[in-house]
Design a protein around this nucleic acid. Structure first.
Ligand code: NAD
Ligand code: NAD
Lengths: 214, 214
DNA sequence: ATGTCTTTGTGAACGCGTGCACAAAGATGG
DNA sequence: CCATCTTTGTGCACGCGTTCACAAAGACAT
């Protein structure tokens, strides 16, 4: 039975082993003291808890540059997501296949959501169309939305929205970049450079805490 | 002189006014007691601190579905980012314009980085090519990388990497989605549903803290 | 069966970000 | 010039997540 210790996993992930064990403990006691965790069983338990064991039908609305790229992306299927339908407002696109899936017109949005039992929608329309599209998706029964349009969406309680803003990603990089330059210039001033985070910035998260003094 | 109070700003942003004031205080004391903050001056100071006042040349490597979509995206320019060059390994693409910018071949990568003074690179190649491309970018002087390939990149100290993993965004939504369904089923069991966050999930950040008991 | 050795699971301490509460600053009006 | 009123800037306390440290559990050898 292949096993891994929390120490090994923690080292590989670059985190503290105690935290990793405590996190696992929320799923139950799946480890064996003196041995570690059964890899296969652990993978299954985590997958199940994260919802990776079921497959989720997803619709993409707005099949332009970005929407088409998303439709073509094979990485979703491997994580349990299935592109159930592509929707666009442009009549010229209706019926035209993108990534092997025929694009359907916005008029049928409600029907498509309903027939496919979709609860997750991706919005890749221009900013102006995002809120109206969002409203229709929600009204049709979608309760989770991934929004690429540069707009803050208003949704009722119970609906989750995640916004992906690529400009902000670049801004965060630029912020650190600017800071690097500043530190070099001040390197002669004696003060040591502050500790740098070494992670792979999983998203535009709790970053950028301290700011340089005036 | 148009001004805003920390209270107004906090309400608009949906955060605590004390936190907002404390954050601003790291930039210096730009407010006037009894009045508030001079809007124009505040915007300038924040922009400067965030590095929004300078424009950053950026190169995109891997001009496929995603890379082309990024190149066509106008939202970057408005935030101070300029697409300085597009690079792809496919000889057939060399010279072909995408979004008005001719695609250049990977062979010239180092020269392109150097001549344009690029310090920020975007990787949109297949996963297998990401690390080699990353190494070349870093060797050529790039110190910030936005990675779309589903790979964890190894970089030397001093180089920042941010990874955008769209599958993880969907997974987070699916996780909450699964949980919603679970709560409905357990609604009869008496325990009240835990408080739900109402924000717009700026990235795959410090989310998903507590996990359901076994 | 008993002892030893490894690794888990978790109570307790620590550190840090967030929010409260208020004194100080400064504008404004009399 | 003084009184009053608004809003900033910040010390302090609270809460939560992270880390430490260790007892308990269990495998494995003798
Ligand atoms: N391209 C990028 O890399 C990128 C990056 C970040 C954000 N974004 C954002 O993503 C969105 C899409 O970008 P894009 O480059 O694909 O734009 P695009 O113009 O190429 O595509 C937009 C598509 O949406 C369709 N559309 C318009 N109104 C619609 C509606 N009401 N219902 C359904 N479909 C509708 C259009 O027909 C078009 O096909 C934009 O909001 C953009 O700001 C794009
Ligand atoms: N399309 C999406 O929505 C999406 C979403 C998430 C992640 N991704 C990831 O982004 C990357 C690109 O996705 P895509 O859909 O655009 O793929 P794609 O196959 O359409 O494009 C890849 C491009 O990279 C070029 N390339 C290959 N090797 C290269 C090298 N060594 N140097 C320079 N260029 C090279 C290819 O010529 C091609 O043009 C992939 O890693 C994919 O997993 C894509």
């Amino acid at each position: 039975m292949p096993t891994v210790s929390s120490e090994e996993l923690a080292a590989a992930a670059g985190v503290n082993s105690a935290k990793l064990r405590k996190d696992f403990s929320y799923l139950g006691s799946y480890g064996t003291r003196g041995v570690g965790y059964d890899v296969e069983y652990l993978v299954y338990q985590i997958s199940r808890e994260l919802g990776l064991t079921q497959d989720w039908p997803v619709v993409i609305v707005g099949i332009g540059n970005l929407g088409a790229a998303l439709a073509n992306y094979g990485g979703f299927a491997s994580r349990g997501f299935r592109v159930a339908a592509l929707i666009d407002a442009d009549p010229a696109m209706a019926g035209k296949p993108v990534a092997g899936i025929p694009v359907q017109h916005t008029d049928d949005l409600e029907k498509i959501i309903d027939e496919n039992g979709v609860s997750i929608g991706v919005i890749a329309t221009p900013a102006g169309a995002a809120q109206p599209v969002c409203d229709r998706l929600v009204a049709a029964g979608v309760t989770s939305i991934l929004n690429f349009a540069p707009t803050v969406l208003s949704v009722p309680d119970g609906v989750d929205v995640r916004k992906v803003d690529l400009s902000i990603e670049l801004q965060i990089l630029a912020f650190h970049e600017q800071r690097k330059a500043g530190e070099e210039a001040e390197a002669q001033a004696g003060a040591a450079a502050p500790a740098e985070r070494g992670d792979q910035g999983e998203g535009p998260d709790g970053d950028v805490p301290a700011v340089m003094p005036a």
